[in-house]
Simulated scan of single mutants.
Amino acid sequence: MRAYQDYIRLAEEKELKIGEIVLAEQAEDSEKTESELRERMRSNLEVMRASVRSGLSEERQSLSGLVGGDAAKVYNRRKSGKSLTGDIVSGAIARALAVAEVNATMGKIVAAPTAGSCGVLPAVLFTVDELLGSTEEELETALFTAAGVGMVIADRANVSGAEGGCQAEIGSAAGMAAAVAVELAGGTPAQTGNAAALAMKSLLGLVCDPVAGLVEVPCVKRNATAATLALAAAEMALAGVESKIPLDEVIDAMGEIGRQMPCSLRETAQGGLAVSKTGQRIKADFL
Rank of each mutant, 00 (worst) to 15 (best):
L143A: 03
M176R: 10
S117R: 00
S264D: 14
E136N: 10
R77S: 11
K73H: 12
T85N: 15
G171M: 02
L238A: 08
K14N: 15
G164D: 01
E169N: 13
D248Q: 08
S43C: 08
I153E: 03
A147D: 05
E31A: 15
A230G: 12
V152S: 03
S264V: 09
L125P: 05
L229D: 05
M261G: 00
G150Q: 04
L143P: 02
E31P: 06
V74G: 02
V159Q: 04
V52K: 01
L198G: 04
P189W: 06
G91Q: 03
V110L: 05
I282H: 04
E12W: 06
E25C: 11
G193V: 04
A197N: 06
E15L: 15
V110G: 02
Q5Y: 14
D87C: 13
E169A: 13
V152P: 02
D70W: 03
T145V: 07
T135Q: 09
T141N: 10
R2I: 13
A237C: 06
L84C: 15
C166Q: 02
C208T: 07
V275R: 07
A253S: 15
D209A: 03
A239V: 12
S264E: 11
A3Y: 15
E136M: 03
G86F: 05
E183R: 12
P246Y: 10
A157N: 11
S62K: 06
R38E: 09
D209S: 06
R2A: 15
G65Y: 09
M176N: 10
N194I: 02
M176K: 12
I245F: 06
G55H: 01
T141F: 06
V120F: 00
A233G: 05
E169P: 10
I93C: 04
V217R: 00
A232K: 07
M254C: 08
A92V: 04
L37W: 10
L204K: 02
L16Q: 15
I8S: 13
M41H: 08
G91E: 02
L97I: 00
P262K: 14
N44A: 12
